[in-house]
């Protein structure tokens, strides 16, 4: 679909107003503006391309279907990043719960049942796609980001990769400004320690 000349000059709020009026092109413009930063944030949060795509899609569908409830006094970017971050954190929490049951179902009563319900992680082969992903996120710094706590990861990515202001990060993550500053400082400290071996 041809891009309507002039979309680029419009602010997010103006594009949102057009989307609320039912203009399909405005929806596409919002996707065009945010698909890359949202996907990048999610990919670095969950470290799985396919999953990041699913979460990004879920984020956009949720945001765009609820565009009528969006309050224009807030930044659209904060709103959509908040939805994306919540999706990532929810997923990571769910995954953490799943990891707890790697040894088998807690309801299994015999060793055989335990073995049958355990996840066979050793059998997982690395597909060519996984290799591409590993290369994409393969840098030392990417690996170090992956080791951070999810809260620190969100903060550091929003601040230094997406270039968001502290106040906006506080709004996105629903955290006090001081906590955001502390998290970013601690995250940088952890990165410094994780990357220290490269200096030696």
């Amino acid at each position: 679909m041809a891009e309507v000349p002039g979309w680029v000059q419009l602010t997010d709020q103006e594009v949102v107003l057009r989307a609320r009026a039912g203009q399909e092109a405005a929806y596409r413009e919002l996707i065009r503006r945010y698909e890359r930063p949202i996907f990048a944030l999610l990919f670095r949060m969950v470290r799985d391309r396919e999953l990041a795509e699913d979460l990004a899609q879920e984020t956009f569908v949720k945001a765009l279907n609820a565009i009528q409830s969006y309050r224009p006094e807030f930044k659209f970017s904060s709103w959509i990043f908040k939805i994306a971050n919540n999706a990532a954190i929810d997923h990571l929490r769910r995954r953490e719960l799943d990891t707890l049951s790697l040894d088998g179902s807690p309801h299994a009563e015999t060793p055989e049942a335990m073995h049958a319900t355990a996840l066979q992680i050793g059998a997982r082969q690395e597909s060519p796609l996984d290799e591409v992903e590993a290369r994409e996120l393969g840098g030392e710094i990417e690996a170090a980001i992956g080791q951070l706590r999810p809260e620190y990861r969100s903060c550091i990515l929003l601040r230094h990769v997406e270039g968001r202001a502290y106040e906006e990060i506080a709004e996105i993550l629903d955290l006090p400004l001081g906590t955001v500053k502390t998290y970013i400082h601690r995250a940088r400290n952890e990165l410094r320690h994780a990357l220290a071996h490269l200096k030696e």
């Binding site: 596409r28 698909e35 996907f39 795509e53 956009f60 569908v61 765009l64 279907n65």
Partner: peptide, 20 residues
């Protein structure tokens, strides 16, 4: 850090699930 983007056709896939 390098910029990353979703696979081609992402916008279309989103729009299929959006109710105008």
């Amino acid at each position: 850090l390098p910029a990353m983007g979703p696979a081609l056709g992402f916008s279309e896939r989103v729009m299929q699930s959006v109710i105008l």
